[in-house]
Nucleic acid binder design. Structure first.
Length: 482
RNA sequence: CGGGGCGUAGCGCAGUUUGGUAGCGCGCCUGCUUCGGGAGCAGGAGGUCGCAGGUUCAAAUCCUGUCGCUCCGACCA
């Protein structure tokens, strides 16, 4: 980066210098979030929240298109409900927040502030499900959850976060498994196409799976610093919860049976992924599909031409407003200042309109992803804007995919494995014997965990285990993770 | 939950060693001039020095405690 460029971004620490500080600088300076007075909690400010709303509406549509309906279950869960599923309690007990008092009176039974809603939802499903005719039950909820985390980072791990959790009940094991994979695919489609983040679908190992699940599937993404992030999970719960919550139905064959269940969720953590996958040293780069502002109009208006420029700029914006999220920046700052500000905020396209453009009957467009400057005739604008936004979306996905490919390595030497994890990081695809001991030892020695066993490759291990050298039962992806 | 760093104006910092009128840069407000990559001049506003105790004639400064942020490790969407 030239010295001139450095001056423009002096407010943000470079990624190379300190990636964590870069992340914090970006989210604060772009006004996505601010720290709240409560430990581990953040305020999602309008710019960040609008992004979340755009993500929500795109994903919500997919969830509904696959037959699910939204509902809302309570924030508070009686302690006795949480206690029912042994693995589940064990997994979540260390990080639940308790309500012990209401007003001035101590509660007879403590309440859990939901860390996830399996237990309270299952307790209701037990009431609602009687017959095979009541199945499947396909419910989703958008809500907040609380997990008392020890180490917190805005979006990536906060004490309270926003998410969506789907909870389904099915007649057969096959149907539950089909649902689990169907929703994983919905997540892949959403994250890759709308957020422009390439993901790897796969299954979690026993050690990494959700507390109380039979099988956990995940989509994993690679961040700009070479660490992986679990971007979404989908769980086949089997009959674990059905049995402890007594969710039974009378099947067609007159037999009383337990339902088969799934649950799946993605959270505001995805915002962290967008920042870390696409961001650069100038700040955010937001994928057009979900960007709060897709096109920012910056009028260049010296006093003499102000009366000509401003109405024209407004007129152009109004013309495309229903289709494209456009805003005009009429504030009393210099154009250069605005350019830098909106680049930092990651707006995909900038439109400059000044006196010279009026004369020539065109406008200037500048792409955030490439910096390319494009002069467009006013009459071609509608078409150009839409096609450029689409191109930017595609290009951002491609850039992220290239980065991931460059940082995915194959390795069958343990020492080399450890060196890569120490220096370059990224993903390593290699063999694993399937043993818990090896998984643990690798984690201790390299801080890398098995991110997933790629979908469709289960049980297809080739070569030998990276750790113990025995025959590989699985081929898996390793990485240091958030 | 352990180890390190930091809390002084909206932001970034100096002042703390050696106690004695709370400062600088940016930003903010007003006016004028400006506007194609972070504009210029002039004037102005803004602080219980994270919080609570203590020592002292006197505390941003010394002592004790506490809270928060941040980084690095152990647990997790």
């Amino acid at each position: 980066m030239s010295k001139k460029e450095k001056d423009f971004v002096k407010e943000i620490t470079s990624r190379e210098e300190d990636y964590s500080q870069w992340y914090v600088d970006v989210i604060l300076k772009t006004e996505m979030v601010d720290y709240a007075p409560v430990k581990g909690c953040m305020v999602i400010r309008p710019y960040g929240y609008t992004l979340w709303e755009n993500m929500q509406s795109r994903l919500d549509k997919r969830i509904k298109d696959t037959g699910h309906k939204n509902a809302y279950f309570p924030l508070f869960i009686p302690e006795s409900l949480l206690q029912k599923e042994a693995d589940h309690v064990e997994g979540f007990a260390p990080e639940v927040a308790w309500v012990t008092q209401g007003g001035s009176e101590k509660l007879t039974e403590r309440l859990v502030v939901r860390p996830t809603s399996e237990t309270i939802i299952c307790s209701m499903y037990a009431k609602w499900i009687q017959s095979y005719r009541d199945l499947p039950v396909l419910i989703n909820q958008w809500c907040n959850v609380v997990r008392w985390e020890k180490t917190t980072r805005p979006f990536l791990r906060t004490s309270e976060f926003l998410w969506q959790e789907g909870h389904t009940a099915h007649r057969t094991e096959e149907e539950a498994q089909e649902e689990t994979l169907k929703m994983l695919e919905v997540y892949r489609d959403f994250v890759e196409n709308d957020l422009a983040i390439p993901v790897i679908r796969g299954r979690k190992t026993e050690r990494e799976k959700f507390a109380g699940a039979l099988k956990t599937y995940t989509i994993e993404a690679l961040m700009g610093d070479g660490r992986a992030l679990q971007a979404g999970t989908s769980h086949n719960l089997g009959q674990h919860f059905a049995k402890v919550f007594d969710i039974t139905f009378l099947d067609q064959d007159d037999q009383l049976k337990y339902v088969w269940q799934s649950s799946w969720g993605v959270s505001t953590r995805l915002i962290g992924a967008i920042i870390m996958v696409h961001g650069d040293d100038r700040g955010l780069r937001l994928p057009p599909v979900v960007a709060p502002v897709q096109v920012i109009v910056v009028p260049i208006m010296p006093k003499k031409t102000r009366e000509q420029v401003l109405p024209k700029a407004r007129e152009i914006m109004d013309r495309y407003r229903d289709k494209i999220r456009m805003e005009i920046d009429e504030r009393d700052y210099s154009p250069g200042w605005k350019f830098n500000e909106w680049e930092m905020k990651g707006v995909p396209l900038r439109m400059e309109i000044g006196p010279k453009d009026l004369e020539k009957g065109h406008v200037v467009l500048v792409r955030r992803d490439t910096g390319e400057k494009i002069f467009v005739k006013e009459e071609d604008l509608g078409e150009t804007l839409e096609s450029l936004l689409a191109q930017i979306q595609d290009n951002m996905f491609q850039q992220a995919l290239d980065f991931r490919n460059e940082n995915t390595r194959y390795c069958d030497n343990y020492q080399e494995f450890k060196n890569i994890m120490e220096e370059k990081r990224g993903l390593i695809k290699t063999g694993w014997c399937g043993g818990d001991e090896c998984e643990e030892r690798i984690k201790d020695e390299s801080k890398a965990t098995i991110r997933c066993i790629p979908l469709g490759e289960e049980g297809k291990g080739e070569g030998h285990c990276i750790c113990c050298g025995q025959e590989a039962r699985e081929t898996v992806y390793f990485s240091r993770a958030y």
